[in-house]
Design a protein around this nucleic acid. Structure first.
Lengths: 259, 259
DNA sequence: CGAGGATACTTTACGTCATAAGGAGATGTC
DNA sequence: GACATCTCCTTATGACGTAAAGTATCCTCG
């Protein structure tokens, strides 16, 4: 299944995402806040990391903090906004952009690997809001990082936009595939390899004409080497190489890929 | 929000996805089935197309067919499996693979545009099961189609796998972005352009140091031309071009991209 | 110092969801 | 005509997000 995110008022998330770190709190009555938006976001991430997306309920997050579900609504307008905050917080794990870089190919590769690893550390992010640009600071910083890395390639603006979109979607999509394979294997308590084996066997049984209907797919599959985990990692590496070659084809600056 | 899909037993979907079209129904007692898996899948797609993913409940699908929610469980094990079937049915709209093609660049472009358009016809698909390979017949046929289109490029197996992954993820990701921009605008009853305008204004207000923190992003944004809709379409076109250049860099066969 | 009001958090409640359980009526085989 | 089987319904369960209203705590102002 999938989870909807952010169908609510996206504008409400913005203020929280970009909110001032801590208002001095002067002239306010009432009990001191025992919680904070940050603490709630952290608790949400902890729950999602440990139990997965389906287990992420307001009740669960509240319990993690020793409160009821409703206590969270003092700090956060609703679950959709909490998800937005969690998303951006995760991306905040990414390292800052380098000041400058000569070898854009190495720089982009590093960027992609970091994002990929980050997604795999928090696979539930991949089940959220696939596309909606929440425009949180960390997300924008990651884009700025990528743009910085690509700068030596000196791409034309249109081409730059296309390259950024292609790279971002590729990393996210590949990570989602890997994460899902892992998740499915883990959920059934079976190794990655066994899971694919049984699945393939079942498929062969249900569609005996498989090799005739899908000859190229069959050929590609039989050309595959090791474990599914290796294959995922491989698809990431070689896919990224294809993308970088494409970027290089449009590069006008100095760089590993250009002439 | 987001929707979980397919966390259930994925193996159960397989039989339905590949199931024989219609068993002859001999020697069976009881009332004749008034429904069918196909009819339920169609109803589900109708509901999702018309009302969006959040409105897709078993009750709603049942109502569409003049039944209760529970009636569906006679035909389909659960909602997750229904989503898998809906997903594959949508991909079945794609045209069949051409027997052969000389100009792989044109062929892949056509393939990508068809997939992109298909996703945009059924945007809810992009909110489902982002990655889990359900391995339905239509999905595999689409991959076989892509492999057929790529064949004249004569890529090495590893590179071929990478290219397929990159292309697929790119189309899906870009479609998701476009669909989401449309959806957000539609939901608020505001034009695409207005939505982005207000959002940008709000962002500028919340983060006045935006241009200093994200100079490259700011530059790229100001270099953008027309409407967001155009920008989405542009990102698709130019991103695809980047990808195809990358594929061409590894092509050993004849083709538009090769030497 | 004491009243009033704002604030943090709780309890309770509502409507919705997927789906388990059990039953009613129809339809086929013997 | 008895019985098994199958479709579809009603009802029920437990979870969900969150609205509403209550309670306890704390600051500020008189």
């Amino acid at each position: 299944m999938t989870v909807y995110a952010g169908q609510g008022d996206a504008h409400r998330s913005l203020a929280l995402l970009w909110g001032r770190p801590a208002e001095p709190r002067t002239g306010r009555s009432g009990p001191k806040p025992g919680l904070s938006v940050d603490a709630i976001v952290s608790a949400g991430i902890a729950v999602a990391d440990a139990e997965g997306m389906p287990a992420l309920s307001m009740r669960a997050v509240g319990e993690q903090l020793g409160r009821t579900a409703m206590a969270l609504y003092t700090y956060v307008p609703g679950k959709a906004e909490l998800l937005d905050l969690m998303h951006d917080r995760v991306l905040a794990e990414l390292p800052a952009a380098p000041a400058a870089f000569d070898d854009w190919r190495a720089a982009v590769t590093a960027w992609a690997e970091e994002l990929y690893a980050c997604y795999l550390r928090h696979p539930w992010v991949l089940q959220v809001s696939q596309a909606r640009p929440v425009l949180g600071p960390a997300e924008l910083a990651a884009m700025e990082h990528l743009l910085t890395a690509l700068q030596p390639a000196a791409l034309a603006p249109g081409r730059l936009r296309g390259a950024v979109a292609a790279l971002w979607q590729f990393v996210r999509g590949t990570a989602a595939t890997t994460a899902d394979a892992r998740g499915a294997a883990a959920a059934t308590g079976v190794t990655d390899e066994d899971w694919w084996t049984t699945r393939s066997a079942r498929l062969a049984e249900l569609a005996p004409d498989f090799p005739r209907r899908f000859p190229l797919l069959t050929a590609l599959q039989s050309a595959a080497g090791g474990s599914p985990e290796d294959n995922s990692a491989d698809a990431f590496r070689t896919g990224l190489a294809v993308l970088l070659d494409g970027v290089a084809a449009g590069a006008q600056g100095l760089g590993t890929g250009g002439p």
